[in-house]
């Protein structure tokens, strides 16, 4: 038995017929070919598969594709706009927030959920928010710095300046 779902992923609407047991992460990777979302532990522990479902950080290995019907999904592929990296992506790059990079998409998506609700998180709050995301390379220090970098950049009055520059 397959079920019809309609999902909006990174702004694009998709209508597909899926088997109810298909996990959301495999729908994204195998059906939509969005392989930036990784399968790490496959047991709801490591957070590598984290995406945003209606804005909320979600382990996509622990959700069925059918549960995401009518939801808005953002994956790591949806973070950059017009070829410009999202401040979080830039932060991980600038602060050397990754080594092998396997956990990075999940880290960025969880951090995006944090920064949406907390513009200026403390180090402690960043570490608490990333509790469900494991990194086996970095020891987390530079990941925390990367999130702080993004928080600073996102709260800077950059947009206004750009507008002013554009007016000139």
């Amino acid at each position: 038995m397959s079920t019809k779902i309609t999902v909006t992923v990174n702004g694009a609407k998709h209508i597909d017929k899926v088997e109810p047991r298909l996990l959301l992460v495999y729908y994204l990777r195998d059906v939509l070919k969005l392989t930036g979302t990784h399968v790490g532990c496959d047991t709801s522990s490591c957070g590598a598969c984290t995406i945003l479902v209606d804005g909320k950080a979600t382990k996509s290995c622990t959700m069925l594709a059918v549960q995401a019907d009518k939801c808005k999904i953002t994956t790591i592929e949806g973070m950059a706009t017009n070829g410009e990296l999202h401040p979080l992506q830039e932060g991980f790059n600038q602060c050397h927030g990754l080594q092998c990079g396997f956990c990075t998409p999940g880290m960025i998506m969880t951090a995006a959920d944090l920064l949406k609700n907390n513009k200026k998180p403390s180090e402690e709050q960043i570490r608490a928010a990333l509790e469900g995301n494991f990194c086996r390379c970095t020891g987390y220090h530079n990941i925390v710095k990367a999130v702080q970098y993004a928080a600073d950049k996102m709260s800077a009055p950059r947009a206004r300046k750009t507008k002013k520059e554009a007016a000139l």
Partner: peptide, 9 residues
Amino acid sequence: IGDVQVRNH
């Protein structure tokens, strides 16, 4: 409980 992702669902 758990972590942010677990608490969200």
